[in-house]
């Protein structure tokens, strides 16, 4: 019994220790933001890697998420509310929830795992030590461009996801219910508020940052060869997915 309590205490302690380490890392990365211009090529490269390379996957997920949302909403509206409002209901779901969360979850899989794997491999092959030995701070050289790109690119990806999601939703509405584009997009427009889109993008901003931060943190903590890199990859994915869903809840409470 005492062992059990001890282990809880120990875990709580190591949790706070780790959270503290993350905050210190983020703070130090934050201070390097003043050097963004000097490091613009590194940042640009990561924006390509994180943003552009994720685009096909995000579009794929976006279209289908929109389509599913449309079908589901139609099912729920049926018999109560006119299908003329289908566009509005679906689009709000996409803007607030589906766009940012699905985009971020896809990004969590792809981005945080790949960041953790890349930095983790560099760690176990002494490349991080080599950077240090060359008087280059890995936090500036590796973490800052990745985290900044996470914050910026995931909202941009979300805009794409919102857009193609809406198209997917309409496509299904047209196939199933024969809704005309005027009615569907008319109702989208009628109930459209910039606030809905913005709150989705704020979520995406937070999720994107969290994803990249976790990827970097886990990557730098990697130990023990190829096996360690594999473990880090999984850990980054699990941690960032969990944090995205947790933050989604917290932000939803805060924003509405």
């Amino acid at each position: 019994m005492i062992k059990f309590i001890e282990s809880i205490g120990y875990r709580t302690l190591s949790f706070f220790q780790e959270a503290g380490a993350v905050f210190i890392m983020v703070w130090r990365v934050f201070k390097y933001l003043s050097e963004v211009w000097r490091n613009r090529s590194l940042v640009f490269q990561q924006m390509l890697e994180i943003g552009v390379r994720s685009l096909p996957l995000v579009i794929f997920v976006g279209v289908f998420a929109g389509a599913v949302a449309s079908v589901q909403t139609a099912y729920q509206l049926e018999g109560y509310i006119s299908f003329n409002y289908l566009g509005a209901a679906t689009s709000i779901a996409i803007f607030i929830e589906l766009g940012p969360v699905l985009t971020a979850l896809v990004a969590a899989g792809r981005v945080s795992a790949s960041i953790a794997a890349e930095i983790g491999t560099m760690k176990v092959t002494e490349q991080i030590d080599a950077l240090e030995a060359l008087a280059i701070d890995p936090l500036r050289y590796l973490a800052m461009p990745r985290i900044l790109s996470g914050f910026i690119m995931v909202p941009i990806l979300t805009i794409f996801a919102d857009f193609v999601g809406l198209l997917g939703a309409y496509f299904v509405a047209y196939l199933n219910l024969g809704l005309s584009p005027e009615i569907f997009f008319g109702s989208v427009k009628e109930f459209f508020t910039i606030m809905n889109v913005m709150s989705g993008l704020i979520k995406a901003f937070v999720f994107g940052g969290v994803t990249a931060i976790i990827g970097c943190h886990v990557g730098f903590g990697t130990e023990g060869g190829a096996e360690g890199v594999g473990k880090s990859t999984i850990r980054a994915f699990v941690l960032s997915s969990a944090l995205i869903l947790l933050n989604d809840y917290l932000l939803s409470v805060l924003l509405f």
Partner: peptide, 9 residues
Amino acid sequence: FQGSALFDS
């Protein structure tokens, strides 16, 4: 470095 530690990217 003993293992060279070249940046492989």
